[in-house]
């Protein structure tokens, strides 16, 4: 199989930024179907911004973003809705709807996009909550949960329709090591068994080694990708000392 030919996300010449200047300039990369793709980089280098461009929330300054062969930037109306249904997103802050219970949060996509009967919707939602270790919390309001629990609930909501692509922005930040490892298992299981593609922003080194098929590393001053490949490769063989330090968890001054 030609790996280039099976790209589910294709980013070409993307430039992105805000009014006060470009954060990313002429960035190109591809995500293959069924792989776990990790975006790395220092805080504030534009990872979340890149993610929001990939899901079509922000229009890019230049370049194209193709999801499953279709341009998310120019897609309109029905076409755009169909495109949106191909992926689920977990935002860095969770973004659960505060006025709904967890179960209502998770069933909302099912309610709007499928004609499943209520009982079936509830069961699907409960299995998803169980997958992230939140069985029994369905009737709680998001505000009644800890930060990590809200994160996990947000993951459950993102994957309730089992979309082809899942975007996760720092899913394991704020989780204890055990829960974080369980989350890694869940991601791997979904990727291997259902062929779901994952685009994950994370800083957790153990998690990166456990799940990542490929990583890209962004840098603020380079305004783009400074390294790309398997994490073990980058750790041992990268010609950029900063990248090696990142993977070996060394301070820059040392």
């Amino acid at each position: 199989m030609d790996p280039q030919g099976d790209a589910i996300i294709r980013v070409e010449g993307l430039s992105a930024g805000f009014d006060d200047g470009l954060l990313l300039q002429d960035v190109s990369f591809q995500v293959r179907r069924g792989e776990v793709f990790v975006i790395l980089g220092g805080s504030g280098c534009g990872k979340s911004t890149l993610l929001k461009h990939l899901i079509g929330l922000y229009p890019p300054a230049a370049g194209t973003i193709l999801i499953d062969g279709e341009d998310i930037v120019t897609a309109q109306g029905v076409q755009r809705l169909a495109l949106l249904r191909k992926f689920g997103v977990m935002y860095q802050s969770g973004a659960l709807f505060g006025s709904m219970t967890l179960l209502e949060n998770v069933t909302l996509p099912l309610e709007s996009y499928t004609d499943l009967p209520p009982e079936a919707r509830e069961l699907v939602a409960r299995t998803k909550l169980a997958l992230v270790g939140l069985e029994g919390f369905g009737r709680h309001m998001p505000a009644e949960l800890s930060g990590g629990m809200q994160k996990r609930a947000a993951i459950a909501r993102a994957m309730v329709l089992d979309p082809a692509i899942l975007f996760l922005d720092e899913p394991s930040a704020g989780l204890d090591p055990i829960t974080s490892a369980e989350l890694d298992q869940l991601i791997l299981s979904l990727a291997r068994n259902l062929g779901i593609t994952f685009v994950v922003v994370t800083h957790e080194l153990p998690s990166i080694y456990a799940i990542a098929d490929r990583v890209i590393m962004l840098d603020k001053t380079a305004r783009g990708i400074i390294a790309e490949g398997r994490p073990e490769m980058l750790r041992d063989h990268s010609d950029n000392p900063w990248v090696r330090r990142f993977f070996n968890r060394e301070a820059v001054s040392s």
Binding site: L116, E119, A120, V124, T127, D162, L194
Partner: peptide
């Protein structure tokens, strides 16, 4: 068979 299918079997 994704999560919804699994939920059906479970049901």
């Amino acid at each position: 068979c994704d999560g919804a299918g699994v939920a059906l079997l479970l049901d």
